[in-house]
Design a protein around this nucleic acid. Structure first.
Length: 1119
RNA sequence: AGUCCCGUAGCUCAGCUGGUUAGAGCACUACACUGAUAAUGUAGGGGUCGGCGGUUCAAGUCCGCCCGGGACUACCA
């Protein structure tokens, strides 16, 4: 089998043989090639053998190894690998440093699950030290599986020296980059309302909030609350004519739990409001309600408005009447006072319970009056600040109400603990207010609400202190730089990513967690002095100062990278001294993990502490590729950090890959049980068919509907065909001892068909290269596939079979071998980036014998040189004619029920121009042989027997004729054969349409041969052929001889004769057989390797039918 | 709610700057072939190119609206 690739040393006597196989076994090939790569260290050589001054820079996005790899990872990596291997073949040095993303919430949550603890337990039940140690272990839990799939799928990346984001050096680089931004004034601390996940115990960044699936439709209890207006001098105008009745503002909320924290109501400046007199539907008390006029119909029906108010009986009548009693403008209400709805606590940071004006108030839904809880909404906070309105933060960070709230104290506002006994607090608040005559309407309402991507719980908007990167300050530059990036597909760059940059918000860096890169900022207690630590060295020297000031006793960060730990809790034991001598404490937050991976271009090199020169040549990347879901993730953080810190893009080309769905187009999920296991898939089908299928079936950025039967088809249509082609070549090349040591037959001396396939091959090399360079991977693979299948296998090999199996190693045969070798050898290289195993297998099998190149591996070799001189478009065209004409003749044979083995006399081919007949003449022999016909007769129109068809050439005429085109087409459509003839003779035609005269030339028409009257024709596009089906005695005899050859061949095969065995044939004679043998005996002998043919009167074997009329008996034996 | 992408044969997909019988492969049916056989050839059925409207001499292709699918954005009461 496939034991070694050690180049066989040729001697005069021992001839190397191409390996022959019993079948195609991908498991075996994968295994052998992996071993070969490992033994010969091919990956490292593929990098090291390329020069440093010709780099192709690739960045590997770091996966998190705390989960198992999935089939979508194989997809993404197949693309990355293909591009990198291709660039290597272009002579580029493509270093590929692997990496692991190790910090962040997913890791922490997994650890908490494993240990059965919650965030609150950290620091009590378990120390931060132990906790972080556990994170460090867990995060690389599946690293073996990752390494395994990486190897098995043939993804080349350096996993021996990966960058790891928890590494001290990596952290130091991240600090340095952050310091770079800090120095530029791009880092600030702010107090804002942010999305916060009580379940995870942390604020969420906008990109975390933008992860797919975060916004979900939820059904919440919503209510319209009645806020009672305070009657005083300012509000007196509203009470006109009301006597001592109360007035309420109506405000709708989808989050009743924020009502205790209400400190204001917002109305729209220009919005029209009405006062409605009605009864509260729950308490049946008479009330006066204020709401937007436009929204009246939302809460009251026309019927209600039409009812007689005075005859209403609150006890018995179901339908409640109402009537509009007054109208106001929003601005009339400004700064009116209302009574606090749920007076548990009072705000300490401002005035409260005022009606204020807000631009954001609309009358699309609700009541046109917005309940404002500054602590729990960004808009609320902004408008409250403007009016000096205070806030009430009555929910703590665990997501439960604080003390002093009566029956609601210490209850969770959402079910964050998955408590089975949790009762919906929105409902309870609604009921509470209902009883107090403070609720006007309570109903369920479906709306979309953001959820935490990890805990799957609804988030809260919560006031938090946070550190931000002022990305908005660099927005213009970010947008400008993005325009220089070559996005694949383009619309992801202009659309999704571009739009994101246009609506950019500042990047919230803070995470109040444990396992991550600590924010290296120390502050004095009053916040007036702060220091940014951007290196370990600086940390150490500042500690020394602190020791002198007496805030620390020893320096734990002076011992070298491998003896320190920059994580919590150690870093929090560092206290520094300010310039004025005050103690400084570290800001408690960690840095968003996305900053980790976005810093990777510099941090993987420990820049700027090491590799200053290398960074210059390794930044920015030529190419990266990840899933579309990284648009706001890694693609953004790389771009933002590179732009802000280094004033450069981070990558020049990017492919954003689509999702891998199941075959029905549904997302893969454990719940549905439609997850495809990458290990099983590769094991069963082989890495190459899997990879090839994924890239060839649709462009990478489209979602892939992953269907195993697609891999099977790829295997059959491409790999097996190619394997069969190789097997065919190997079989005969070995018989003829072809090892490419013979002198090369010059191209011009080779057969037409050889020149043709070489021409196509060079066209293919050219097109594939163009496609690869443009990152059009899918078309490239499709072209290779179609070349192998349609042209190489189903045309070149099929037509050339007999060249290989007949006679000695003549010059013609030699050129056939050399041609086929060159084609296969080239294909092995073209396919190698996408199918690295099979490409290697093919390359080695060929090169091992022929020693054409010195490279140890196809992946060390260079992309095949494009020989422009070998490309002959005329030749390609006439071969296409040959293919089409053959196909037409075969279909005519089919229609006439004439099997191909029956020779026919001639094909008739109408000829309209000389070039065509010249072209066909050159491939005549191929056609005649393929369809088993003796000659081609060209039928020129001088005889006047061709019926022609004429069509206007819309492309040239359309522009000139414009509106008259239709009319012209009608005229031309009515041309007679005589009209066409005179047009062809004179070469021009005057077309009169009304008053207009158009001078048309031959170019304005398309004339085709449609028919040869009296013959059966077949046509395809512009080609038409007819077939002479009359049979002479001679042709019949030859046909019979061919049938005999066929039967004898079958017997040879069923008798297990070797293809080279010579035989003796006995035939039971009859008139037909006798004539066939007399006339074509030599032919039969040559074809069947028979030394003699004996005709006998009777034979003992089975009767074999030769055609409808003739049968015989045949006997063969080895001679 | 907005933005972007997609919608072509039962399935997977081509269809370039608008140009006149809308293609391929798979699957299906029939016949042929059997010295590549996990093949191959030929023929056949199968399409209102998501719908409607517009621009144009001409629309699968350009424009608008709508429907369906997906991704993303969103403080939205």
């Amino acid at each position: 089998m496939f034991c070694t690739f050690a180049r066989l040393i040729k001697t005069e006597s021992v001839m190397a043989k191409y390996k022959e196989y019993k079948g195609l076994n991908f498991q075996e090939i994968d295994k052998e090639i992996l071993k070969f790569w490992k033994d010969k260290d091919v990956f490292n050589k593929s990098v090291d053998q390329r020069p440093h001054d010709n780099q192709f820079i690739f960045y590997e996005g770091p996966p998190s190894a705390n989960g198992k790899p999935g089939i979508h990872h194989v997809f993404g990596r197949a693309i990355k690998d293909m591009v990198c291997r291709y660039q290597t073949m272009q002579g580029k040095r493509v270093e590929r440093k692997g990496g692991w993303d190790t910090h962040g919430l997913p890791v922490e949550l997994k650890v908490e699950k494993e240990l059965g603890i919650t965030k609150e337990d950290i620091g009590t039940k378990i120390t931060v030290e132990e906790y972080n140690q556990q994170c460090r272990t867990t995060v690389l839990e599946f690293v073996d599986q990752w390494n395994d799939i990486t190897e098995k799928m043939g993804y080349w990346v350096d996993l021996d020296n990966p960058y790891i984001t928890f590494d001290n050096k990596y952290i130091e680089s991240v600090w340095n980059i952050l310091g770079n931004l800090y120095t530029k004034g791009l880092i600030y601390k702010g107090y804002t309302i942010q999305p916060y996940s009580p379940g995870a115990g942390t604020g969420l960044s906008s990109h975390e909030l933008n992860l797919p699936g975060c916004y979900k439709d939820v059904k919440d209890t919503t209510m319209v609350a009645q806020f009672k207006l305070v009657r005083n001098d300012k509000s007196e105008f509203i009470y006109e004519g009301l006597g001592d009745e109360d007035v309420h503002f109506l405000a709708w909320t989808t989050t009743p739990w924020t009502l205790p924290s209400n400190t204001a109501l917002a109305v729209g400046h220009k919005i029209d409001y009405v006062m409605v007199k009605t009864y509260n539907p729950y308490t049946k008390k008479k009330v006066n309600l204020i709401l937007a006029e436009n929204l009246l119909s939302q809460w009251f029906t026309d019927e209600q408005l039409a009812m007689d108010f005075d005859s209403f009986d609150p006890e018995n009548d179901k339908l409640i009447p109402c009537k509009v009693t007054a109208k106001f403008k929003g601005k009339d209400f400004e700064l009116l006072d209302y009574e606090q709805l749920m007076p548990y606590h009072q705000p300490k940071d401002g005035i409260a319970f005022k009606v204020i004006l807000g631009d954001f108030v609309s009358t699309e839904d609700g009541t046109g009056i917005v309940h404002i809880a500054p602590s729990f909404g960004a808009d609320d906070m902004a408008v409250a600040k403007k009016y000096g309105i205070g806030s009430l933060t009555l929910v703590d960070k665990q997501g439960k109400f604080i003390d002093g709230m009566g029956e609601f104290s210490n209850r969770y506002v959402k079910n964050y603990k998955d408590d089975p006994n949790w009762e919906n607090i929105d409902v309870d608040i609604s009921v509470h207010l209902k009883l107090a005559n403070k609720a006007f309407n309570i109903k369920k309402h479906v709306h979309s609400y953001p959820h935490c991507w990890r805990t799957d719980k609804p988030i809260l908007y919560y006031p938090l202190d946070s550190w931000f990167v002022k990305t908005t300050a660099m927005q213009d530059k970010l947008i400008a730089k993005n325009k220089t990036i070559n996005w694949h597909p383009e619309h992801t760059g202009t659309g999704r990513f571009g739009k994101w940059l246009e609506n950019l918000q500042d990047w919230n860096l803070s995470r109040s967690r444990f396992w991550g890169i600590p924010l290296p900022i120390w502050r004095t207690e009053d916040g007036k002095e702060e220091i940014f630590i951007d290196s370990v060295e600086k940390l150490s020297s500042e500690i020394e100062k602190s020791i002198k000031a007496g805030f620390m006793t020893d320096n734990p960060y002076s011992k070298g990278y491998d003896k320190i730990d920059l994580h919590k809790p150690y870093i929090d034991r560092v206290f520094l001294v300010s310039e004025s001598g005050k103690k400084m404490t570290r800001e408690a937050d960690l840095i968003d993990v996305w900053f980790d991976s976005g810093s990777m271009p510099a941090a993987q090199l420990h820049y700027p502490f090491e590799n200053q020169d290398k960074f210059k040549t390794h930044f920015p990347a030529d190419f990266i590729s990840e899933g579309v879901d990284q648009t706001r993730g890694w693609f953004f953080t790389l771009h933002a950090i590179a732009t802000m810190a280094f004033d450069s893009v981070a990558y020049k080309n990017v492919i954003s890959t689509g999702l891998v769905l199941d075959k029905k187009g549904e997302k893969m999920s454990k719940r549905k049980g439609n997850v495809v296991d990458p290990f099983m898939t590769i094991e069963k089908y082989g890495a190459d068919p899997t990879r090839w299928y994924m890239i060839a079936s649709s462009p990478p950025w489209e979602n892939l509907k992953f269907d195993l039967s697609g891999i099977e088809e790829t295997t059959r249509k491409f790999f097996i065909t190619l394997y069969n082609t190789y097997s065919f070549f190997a079989l005969y090349a070995n018989l003829d001892n072809f090892d490419y040591s013979q002198a090369e037959v010059p191209l011009e001396e080779r057969a037409e068909i050889d020149k043709w396939i070489i021409s196509l091959l060079n066209t293919l090399k050219k097109e594939v290269k163009q496609d690869f360079n443009a990152y059009n991977l899918t078309p490239a693979l499709r072209k290779i596939q179609s070349f192998v299948y349609d042209h190489l296998s189903n045309w070149y090999v099929r037509l050339n079979r007999r060249r290989f199996w007949k006679g000695d190693l003549s010059k013609d045969k030699l050129s056939a071998y050399q041609t086929m070798f060159e084609v296969l050898f080239t294909i092995s290289k073209l396919m190698a980036p996408a199918a690295p195993f099979f490409g290697e297998w093919l390359y080695q099998n060929l090169n091992e014998v022929a020693n054409k190149e010195e490279f140890e591996s196809v992946h060390l070799s260079l992309y095949p040189e494009i020989k422009e001189a070998a490309i002959d478009s005329d030749l390609e065209q006439r071969m296409e004619y040959a293919q089409k004409i053959s196909s037409l003749v075969l279909s005519l044979r089919k229609r006439q029920k004439l099997r191909v083995r029956q020779p026919l006399q001639k094909i008739l081919l109408p000829i309209l121009d000389e070039k065509f007949s010249n072209q066909v003449e050159k491939v005549k022999d191929l056609i005649l042989h393929e369809v088993n016909v003796k000659e081609i007769e060209y039928v020129t129109d001088t005889a006047g027997i061709i019926k022609k068809r004429i069509k206007p050439n819309f492309k040239t005429l359309g522009r000139r004729m414009g509106k008259q085109m239709k009319e012209a087409a009608a005229v031309i459509g009515k041309f007679t054969q005589a009209d066409i003839e005179s047009l062809e003779k004179s070469g021009k035609y005057d077309l009169k349409l009304g008053d207009d005269n158009f001078e048309l030339t031959l170019e304005d028409f398309i004339i085709t041969a449609e028919d040869i009257p009296g013959w059966t024709v077949a046509s395809d596009g512009n080609l038409t052929v007819a077939l002479d089906i009359s049979l002479t005695e001679d042709l019949k005899a030859e046909g019979l001889a061919r049938e005999l050859v066929n039967r004898i061949q079958n017997l040879r095969k069923s008798s297990d004769f070797d293809v080279v065995d010579r035989i003796k044939v006995k035939l039971e004679s009859n008139d037909f057989v006798k004539e066939a043998v007399e006339k074509y005996g030599d032919y039969i002998k040559v074809e069947t390797l028979a030394d003699e043919i004996v005709l006998v009167d009777s034979l003992d074997s089975e009767t074999i039918e030769l055609n409808d009329n003739v049968s015989t008996k045949i006997d063969i034996e080895r001679s």
